[in-house]
Amino acid sequence: MTRTGTVEAEKRIPDPSPARIKRRNPKRPGQIGWLGSVPALIIGLLFTVGPLIIIVIFSFLSRPKTGGGVIYDFSLEAYRSFLVQVDFLGNTTFDPRYLAVFGDSLVQASVTSVVCLVLAFPLALWMATRKPRMQNVLVLLVTIPFWTNLLVRTYAWMLILNENGIVNTFTKAVGIGSVDLLYTPFASQLGLIYTFLPFMVLPIYSSLAGFDFRLAEAAYDLGAKKMAVVRRIILPIATPGIVSGLLLVFMPAFGSYVQPVLLGGGKLLLIGNLIAAQFGASRNWPFGAALSVIVLVMLMLTLMLIAFYSRRSGRKVEISL
């Protein structure tokens, strides 16, 4: 609204010589010319768009007879091998193994997202209702995990969960005996939830931090009880934060690599590990690239769906912290 206001205000100003003013390029205070953003643009292109282009190109190339790398020979083999298997006689059969990997990854990412949401919503609501100073401290506490490397934190979990770890020491002392925790799908799931919880808390918190709690009062005044206030007023207003939190958790959890290997012991093959293997031991770069492209397209479709929802419902969904 304010933006259109300024544009209109500019139009109304009598302009003696439009061409001259255009040449002189008058800047409003705080504006920077395009030149200032060139370094950032170059870095952006080199480090984000560049690798993507390489991945897409690689996925349509062939693999050499031996070793890694690619040979510049157009081929759809990588995409074909995702769904079908060709035996020595040239017969093609449907191969669901890679789809199953996708399915497993989907399940793990979904469980992570849902558990994070259930844990994060009350926490974010509680944070948003504290005093402003307290809120700053709480946000800082939520971001503390970002201060240390993910690997270090994951190793810390290994120490907690292993045979002689804190949990097992406790269960032994209580008399339950030792419990196998490390190198289980449970450990992998736990690690994912732990890692991505802040990514759910922060966007929900930020959508609730600006929430006018007088609206809750108004709802009480109109006869709403506590649960109705949460369901009918707070939840709808937090929706943009919830959606962006789900995205921020689901996307990286879907392609997660560290937790399934270090905590899950690599017992369950997930899409991240599968891709890593293609560029490593399997030495099938085009297939690894093709898998990456498939993941990318899936996520892009999801984002487009959300953008569509956002436009239709008129709710702004920001994919940022």
């Binding site: 006018d212 007088r214 609206l215 009062e217 108004a218 709802a219 005044d221 109109l222 006869g223 709403a224 009880k225 109705a228 009918r232 007023i233 709808p236 207003i237 709710r315």
Partner: peptide, 26 residues
Amino acid sequence: VNTVFQSYALFPHLTVAQNIAFGLEM
């Protein structure tokens, strides 16, 4: 007893009609 608030406190995600209906639905 019902209140008209200084800030109006209208529910931003609901339409005018839905706002008015809120108390009755409750």
